[in-house]
Simulated scan of single mutants.
Amino acid sequence: MMSSSRFKSLWTHRFKKYTHIVGKFWSFALKYIHLRRLKSTLGERPLVAIILSEQMGDIIACEPVAREVRRRHPNGHIIWIVREPYIELVKYHPDLDGYLVEKCPGERVWLLRSGIYDQVYNMHISHRKCRYCPEDPVNPTSDKMGLTFDNYLDKGDLLYTFSQAAGLPALTDNPRLYIPESVRRQVSALKLQASPIVIHCQSSHVMRDWPAENWNHLVRWLLETYPHPIIEVGVNPIVSLEHPRFRSLCGQLSLLETAEVIHQARLFVGIESGPAHMANAGGTTGIILQGQLFDFVDYLTYSGRYKRGEGVTIVNYHGHPCAELPYADVQLAVQQQLGQPKLV
């Protein structure tokens, strides 16, 4: 006989599943109608879709795709298909005419099958399904490349690989972020100390992270050794200390506000995650902490200046996860960037 907790869990899952599927149907219908109406106003202009709906670092790294697609379709109406948390990353791009919020990969499949788009540049790898939907998203171009979630980081940086998955040449440009003046004013209103060291300590995946005690040790050493203020960004605070030159902005900033804070930094120190891609796109000198991720040992996700080794130090304990990265290696990298310590 099924226990009450298992029974409740089963029916909670079923409720969420069928609610999601019904919501997907209505979301698809409304978007299809919207796109049909949009196409009726475009005349002979093609409706062009760029599809890379998540993750933060992937979208930032692949920003040059928008510029390449605009070069190919100067008269096209170009939209980027994106999940709601990442709208900011594409909203202000000058080469885009708009964006469309994706509910889930299953909805993406329905819109592609509808033929509503005149041209599609799909950067997704096949078979990343919605947890509730039966549809299996397939990208024939990435399949021809032999691209899978087990090997994609072995093929090259994110832009190099995903641009080819979209049917474009392998792109290698510097990514850019487009930050409106309204966001700059919001960051200015925070009255941050000038030329800070910005740190980002926790990713969405524990395998990318460095221990909290190491971060706290590093920040204490920095405050004792250098005159720079230190700002922590991210979702959850990791550093737990009070100091007039330390400030946590975790959970307080939008994506583009975070990017602007990093852009103003003297130095960015962080794990391999979305904010590190912001540092690359913003021209900020960076120290990136990286280790083995699943079976990926020697990989680099960045294009442009970080790929060329300009303004960046990648601290990688090869063959070991980031959590095992020696503290001394990171401290040395910081010291090499900031110069000989000066007692405060």
Rank of each mutant, 00 (worst) to 15 (best):
L222K: 03
E102S: 09
R176M: 00
R67A: 11
L42R: 04
A166M: 07
H73Y: 14
D58V: 08
F7H: 09
W221V: 06
K144G: 12
S273W: 08
T12R: 15
E63M: 10
G286N: 12
H13N: 00
L38M: 06
H34V: 01
S163E: 04
V269T: 09
V187Y: 02
T172E: 12
L168T: 12
V22I: 14
C130N: 15
Y92M: 07
T172R: 15
L255A: 01
R14C: 05
T141H: 03
I50L: 11
S9T: 14
R71H: 11
Y160F: 15
K39S: 00
L289A: 07
T41E: 13
W210H: 08
S203E: 02
K39N: 10
A279V: 03
N122F: 02
G234F: 00
S240D: 13
E84A: 14
H320K: 13
T301L: 15
D157P: 00
L111V: 08
S182M: 02
K24L: 05
Q119P: 01
W26E: 14
I81S: 11
D295M: 01
R245Y: 06
M207A: 13
S303Y: 07
N316C: 11
L332S: 08
A265R: 04
E181A: 14
S303R: 05
H243V: 10
R185V: 01
A333P: 04
L168K: 05
F296K: 06
L256C: 02
G23P: 06
I50K: 06
N280H: 04
F149P: 05
V312Y: 07
V90M: 10
T284K: 15
L147F: 12
R37H: 15
L96H: 03
L159R: 02
Q292N: 12
D150W: 00
G282H: 13
Y152V: 06
T12N: 11
H13W: 15
D95I: 00
P237V: 11
C130I: 07
Y178F: 15
V269Q: 10
L10Y: 05
K129L: 10
L218N: 05
